[in-house]
Simulated assay, not measured.
Amino acid sequence: MKWQSALAIYTLFWAMSVFFVLPFGVRTSEEAGVPLVPGQAPSAPHSFNPTKIVVRTTILSAVLFGAFYLNYVYGWVTAEMLDWTQ
């Protein structure tokens, strides 16, 4: 696998992982014990920490890409194994 392909696939895993990571650890203003700002939705997060989200996303995407790459190298699951029409 070329490094450009690996980078593109890793980027796709990273973008997908963001959506898995975003909901974890979110606290609303009510849960944090802070009064709502006028016009703020009750479900809005109290604070946003992008650094924590980027670190968690990078770790998750590295694990997922590692599993993908090991499958690519060792061929644990192939396209023929997933063809149920035969």
Rank of each mutant, 00 (worst) to 15 (best):
V34P: 01
L82P: 07
L7R: 11
L82M: 13
L64P: 01
A6I: 09
V54A: 13
N49W: 14
I53D: 09
A79D: 14
T57Q: 01
N49L: 14
S29E: 14
L82I: 08
V63M: 04
L82D: 08
T57K: 01
P35V: 05
K52Y: 11
M1V: 06
T11K: 09
A15D: 08
S5M: 09
P35Q: 03
N71D: 03
A6S: 11
M81N: 15
W84N: 15
N49Q: 12
H46C: 12
V73N: 04
A8P: 06
A62T: 10
P38F: 04
M81T: 12
F24H: 15
L12I: 12
A41N: 15
Y69N: 01
P42Y: 06
H46Q: 10
T28I: 04
P38Q: 03
A32G: 08
Q40G: 07
Y72C: 09
V21K: 01
S17Q: 02
L70K: 06
Y10H: 12
Q4Y: 08
R56S: 13
V37N: 10
T11D: 07
G66W: 00
V77E: 01
L22R: 06
G66I: 00
V77L: 05
I59Y: 05
V18E: 04
A79Y: 08
M1N: 07
T85E: 15
L36H: 11
I59K: 06
M16Y: 12
A62V: 06
V54G: 08
M81I: 08
G66A: 03
Q4E: 13
L7K: 11
V63F: 04
F24L: 15
F68W: 10
A79E: 13
L70D: 04
V55K: 04
I9E: 03
F13T: 02
F24D: 14
A6M: 15
T58V: 05
W14A: 01
W14T: 02
P35S: 05
G33D: 06
W14S: 01
F68D: 00
F65D: 00
K2Q: 11
W76T: 03
S17R: 02
K52W: 12
W84Y: 15
S29Y: 14
F65L: 00
Q4V: 12
V37F: 11
E30V: 13
P23L: 07
L60P: 04
V18F: 15
F68A: 01
F48M: 14
V55T: 10
A6K: 09
W76H: 06
R27C: 14
E30F: 12
V37L: 14
N49G: 12
L70F: 07
Q86W: 09
